[in-house]
Design a protein around this nucleic acid. Sequence first.
DNA 1: CTGAAAGCGCTAACAA
DNA 2: TTGTTAGCGCTTTCAG
Lengths: 327, 327
Amino acid sequence: MSSGRVSIRSVAKAAGVAIGTVSKSLNGDPEISEATRARVQQLARELGYHPMAQARGLARGRTGNVAVAVRSVFQPIFTSAFYSEVLAGVEAELERHDLNLLLTSLKRGDDLLHLASERRADGILYIGYDVEAAFLRELSASTPLVVIDGEAEGLSSVVSQNVEGSRVATRHLLSKGRRRLVFAAMTLAQPNFRARHVGFEEVLREAGLGSGPVVEGRSFADLYGALHALFASYRPDGVVCANDAVGYSVVQVLETLGVRVPEDVSVVGYDGTTGAEHRKTRLTTVAVDKQELGAAGVRVLLRQIQNPEAPPQQVVVPTQLEPGDTS
Amino acid sequence: MSSGRVSIRSVAKAAGVAIGTVSKSLNGDPEISEATRARVQQLARELGYHPMAQARGLARGRTGNVAVAVRSVFQPIFTSAFYSEVLAGVEAELERHDLNLLLTSLKRGDDLLHLASERRADGILYIGYDVEAAFLRELSASTPLVVIDGEAEGLSSVVSQNVEGSRVATRHLLSKGRRRLVFAAMTLAQPNFRARHVGFEEVLREAGLGSGPVVEGRSFADLYGALHALFASYRPDGVVCANDAVGYSVVQVLETLGVRVPEDVSVVGYDGTTGAEHRKTRLTTVAVDKQELGAAGVRVLLRQIQNPEAPPQQVVVPTQLEPGDTS
DNA sequence: CTGAAAGCGCTAACAA
DNA sequence: TTGTTAGCGCTTTCAG
């Protein structure tokens, strides 16, 4: 219980050395004798000294934090199971590098500019597919920046293997003998979903099955309407979904329509959302390593920070088919 | 496009004044003439000057960020829809006060101590029910701290109206003519859930119905087993759930058991989890204003920061019954 | 009303 | 090997 805050000066006084010596000792400067280093470190520990991050940062020219920026399009990122896990991955990797996570949800357009110009972070992790490429490119000229789960020319990014993952999902249904396949999504306006649709179409074409119908719908009700109509005319036997949320909706819709899953129709999702233990049915899905998506983003950013001149770098994280109860 | 970083000095030079004057002008010091203030502000804007957060913080003795600490017990907070929304509320309120959100998931026991001793944040928001009271009380002596969704003697906190909310839920089922009620939870080891159970029991007793059975289970399978057994012996006609996750599981279990909801059995959840639009059934629930939970936490913390001597303050956020399809 | 100067707590040259 | 000192970029007394 020392009175007031214990600063580097307290330690210096206690050790009978100059504050510079304390600094060097604590930072492992090789030019300090083993003896004093040990003594200073011991003393610092005893006094409970921890360098004040702000002061250290000011002197060293860095902040020790990384800003994670997310834009809320439909719903805030926070409520998305997918992005939440990405965030967890980011957090874990930052922690390993002794970096802090500054969370910002972008509201006004200049939020990011402020963050950057006030130098609150050493780099920016932009999470989301809705990339304003031109803006971010300009920003990335002055602040290291990596896009996670989105991409654009001239920007470092980390994405999942969208097209290939969807190919695997589609082939999986074909291997189950399904031939009348449908692609279901909340929307095709989202780049990742569109890429997954491309994979779906590619495989159908390769298999000589032509092009499959698409069902779009954001809610259970929308999907119900669309599938109801489609079933009347087309009688699909397999549904490839753009993500798990839609996948679970589709399963419920099919049950409501009196269609048995997977006996009559197979369903495959995308994402590998956790939390399935609370549900009756475990969706067959294309699992994305979301934590890895985040962690990889951090690693790319770190490289970018260390070498700001390095050219943008793209990383693709592999996916894996995860069989469940719906195929 | 000015070369290099634009600092306060650049502005001072451009305006032909001292840096102190720039600082005062920009911070609205009344002792500066309207004329120079305007000129400096104009110039600062033109040059794109933004004070560097770190330097400003060092001089002012604060950081401008608030640490949000979460402990991951069963699953990381990030993947919980409930906490994610709380986090969104925190974020929004912090933004209104020009504060940054430093997100930390507690792994090692001294993570928080580090954060505090390195003075990375002006205050701490601890989110979660698993409060290590003694530790946090000690910490709160040196750093303003507020617990959200948990509480303990001697700590500032914000919680939802657990007992009362559950009373309302239980009365709701009674008003629907239900008399054979069950309480379902993932576990009763969690304080919030226990409080909700208390509300449930109180109302039953008041209604002269004695005490109701309790069903515990973390997964669909567990709940299925427990409810299956219970239905054989007891034939409940209403289930009060400790939260929505359990509520949705219960609904699926009942459907699987061939019990109709709400015709045969009514189910009510707790939390008011968003994202129901992707589901067939909308659960009747006790809605907690999760954003408000977070925002209130920020406000209490701010008071604590401004007046560190103020005694701990407890805030209770009201709940509201939200009728759905399951009652 | 404005300028000068002393820090905020630390790091990193540069001396000694 | 250690001590001294000049900043890091800003705020804030205290003179002028």
